[in-house]
Nucleic acid binder design. Sequence first.
DNA 1: GTTTGTGAAACGATTCACAGCT
DNA 2: AGCTGTGAATCGTTTCACAAAC
Lengths: 206, 206
Amino acid sequence: MRKIAESTVRRLSLYLRFLEEFEEEGTATVSSEALARRGGTTSAQVRKDLSFFGSFGKRGLGYSVRELADALRDILGLERSYNVAVVGAGKIGSALVEYEGFSGRGFHVRWVFDRDPEKIGSAWNGVRVQDVERLEAELRAGDVQIAIVATTADAAQAIADRLVAIGVKAILNFAPVQLSVAHDVAVKNVNMAMELETLSYALRNR
Amino acid sequence: MRKIAESTVRRLSLYLRFLEEFEEEGTATVSSEALARRGGTTSAQVRKDLSFFGSFGKRGLGYSVRELADALRDILGLERSYNVAVVGAGKIGSALVEYEGFSGRGFHVRWVFDRDPEKIGSAWNGVRVQDVERLEAELRAGDVQIAIVATTADAAQAIADRLVAIGVKAILNFAPVQLSVAHDVAVKNVNMAMELETLSYALRNR
DNA sequence: GTTTGTGAAACGATTCACAGCT
DNA sequence: AGCTGTGAATCGTTTCACAAAC
C-alpha cells in the first residue's frame, strides 16, 4: 500500500471522532464541507484524505455517517482490540490507566510495571502493579501489542530495548528522550515540555 | 518576522534538549552533523532550521554548545518565566502540576481549578485547588500567560471561552475536543487516544 | 443543483551541493 | 581541511477547479 502521511492519519482519527459526534446527534449523512468545518480544515482536504483509501461518499449527497465511521475504524485498525502494557507507575502512568478514552476504543491496559517497591502490589483500576523485573516473564506469555513508556528520562531507553527484544512493535513514549529503536518499530513521542515550548514561541511573537 | 513552520520550532526545542545534554557531558562545541545524529534528522536540516533566525556557528568548527543553547532559549522565549493555570484537577491535571520538566524551564503552575467540592481546598505541590467559579476573579488579578485545559470533553469549550475572555493567549488542551478560539490565541492539542490510533494504524501495516 | 473524486497547479518543506569562512 | 550558511533542486502536501455521479 502507498505510504500515507502521518498528518493524514491524524486527520482521519479526528474525522472519526466527529463522525461519532454526528452519530450521537442523530445525523445520518455529512458532506466533506461539514466535516471540514468541525475539524478546522477544508473540504478538499477531507476528500483527498479519504481518496487514498477508496471512495466512500455519494456525489450530490455526501457520506453516510455510519458507513464512513465504519470505514475509518477499519482503515485505522480499530475493529481489533489491543493489549497495552504501561511501564512506569508515576502520575502520568496512573492517568493513562484510568483514562476512559482508551478502553472505549479497544485499547486495554493489561499490565502496569514499576520498580518502586512501594507501588508494586497495589492495584490500579483492577490492574496490579508489578515489578519491572518481571517485564519479560509477563509479556512474553501475554500477547502485548502496544507499550506505553512513562518512566523517567534516564530509564526509558533501557526499557524500550527490553520491550523491543520481547517483540513489541509500537511504543508510545512519554519520557522526554528520543528513543532509538529498530526501524520496524513505531514510536510516538508525547513531550509535554516541548508542547509548552512551542506555546512559548507562539507567545513571543504577539 | 517571517512565519516559521511548527515542525521547525519543535526541532529547535529538541536541539535545545540535546545541547543541554552535551553541556552536562562537558562538550564545548558540536557540529550540525552531531546534533542531527542525536535528533534523527540531517545536518542540512539543522543548519536550515537555525538559518531562519541567524547564524550561530563558526565555519570549519561548528557551534559553541553554550552559545547555541542560549540563542535557542532566546528564540523560544524561554529566558522569561510563565505563570500557568491548570483547569481540571483529574489525573492528568495532577500529573502536570507535579511534572518536574515544567518549573525547570520557567513554567510555573500558580493556579489549579476544579468544580468537584471534594477536590477544592486540597493542596497540590503547594498549590491550592480552587473552585472553577473563581477562575475570572483569580486570573484577572494574577498575571496568567498559559492555561492548561484538562477537563472532560464536554466542559472544555466553555472553559476555553472563559480563558480567552480573560485574555489568555496560549492554551494547552488535553481534552479530546477541537477547541474553537479567536485566531490570535495559540492552542496546542495533546490527545492521547489519537496518538494510540496512529500507532494502531502503524501496526495495521506490518 | 449538489457534492464527490481527482488530476493539475500552487505551495511549503526538505535535501542537495557548493561557495565562503575559519 | 572542515564545517557553516544558503540558493537551487527536489520532494511531499495542500489547494484548486472541474468532470462525473446522484
